[in-house]
């Protein structure tokens, strides 16, 4: 298997990223590169800041310190106008799809085209139906988002994310809550889209097994930094305890299962909560 890990041509470069959310330190000197053209997985236990990382990379939040380069441009210093220009090259798949509830499937997918282009309606129709066909939902164009199942909504959102032919797509937890069939469909779709359209794909997930089948390179986040980098095989054979614990799903290890808490017995016996 080719190594898809960072090489010479990186579309995203994150350097020394620091970000705190109130008291909680989310990133503490994170360094990470995403190579153009591959499927990159970002994995990590719940609450390590995977979603936050996507929000930072896309300029929805501003870090306390550090640099984030998107195709050579500093995201942290972009004006709103520059951010919008960058985001026109970016597709993002939110966990719940984030479809516009007052538009039907067709109009949802057509939305970015209608906002950003002056294409004639006939051409828009052609593009929308092509994208819907790619996710297998051409027949559902008339349905409203409320009439879709979770998996269908996510596929519509995927069609919408690719309708402007972006350079890069971010997927936030694309596999959560999918049945095995939809899961397989979405997994293969991500890989197929990536290769057919020449995209860069970034998949945020804690589903090790699923993402291993399509990722060229994986990052494992822990304690506000990258704990390990490599192909899925390399991560599986990793010697670090943190990595082994996560990859094999063990409750005990360096990553605590419990949120920091006082002694269990003491808290149970204490007269009042405090």
């Amino acid at each position: 298997m080719k190594s898809g890990c960072p090489g010479a041509d990186n579309i995203i470069v994150v350097r020394d990223l620091h970000y705190a959310r109130g008291q909680a330190m989310v990133f503490d000197g994170l360094d990470l590169e995403i190579r153009r053209g591959g499927v990159t997985a970002i994995m990590g236990p719940s609450g390590t800041g995977k979603t936050t990382l996507l929000r930072l990379i896309t300029g929805q939040e501003i870090p306390d310190r550090g640099s984030i380069l998107f195709d050579g441009d500093e995201v942290t210093r972009m004006s709103r106008r520059q951010l919008f220009r960058m985001r026109r090259r970016v597709g993002m798949l939110f966990q719940n799809g984030a479809l516009l509830t007052d538009l039907n499937v067709y109009d949802n997918v057509a939305f970015p085209l209608r906002e950003h282009t002056r294409l004639p309606e006939r051409l828009i129709r052609h593009i929308v139906l092509t994208k819907l066909h790619a996710v297998g939902l051409r027949g559902a164009w008339r349905l409203m988002p409320a009439q879709l199942s979770g998996g269908m909504a996510r596929r519509v959102a995927l069609a919408r994310a690719i309708v402007m032919d972006p350079d890069i797509i971010y997927y936030d937890e694309p596999f959560v809550g999918l049945d095995p069939i939809s899961m397989g469909v979405v997994v293969r779709l991500i890989r197929r889209m990536n290769d057919a359209l020449g995209l860069t794909s970034v998949v945020v997930t804690h589903d090790v097994d699923e993402v291993s089948t399509i990722a060229d390179c994986s990052f494992l986040l822990a304690d506000g930094r990258v704990a390990a980098t490599g192909t899925p095989e390399q991560l599986r054979d990793h010697h670090s305890e943190t990595v082994t614990q996560f990859m094999q799903g063990m409750a005990d290890g360096p990553v605590p299962f419990h949120y920091p808490a006082p002694d269990y017995g003491e808290q149970l016996l204490a007269p009042e909560r405090d």
Partner: peptide, 16 residues
Amino acid sequence: LMKATDQLAGMEMMAV
């Protein structure tokens, strides 16, 4: 509700 269901953030991400 549009905010709570990420629809507004989604628009921001579509540069709208």
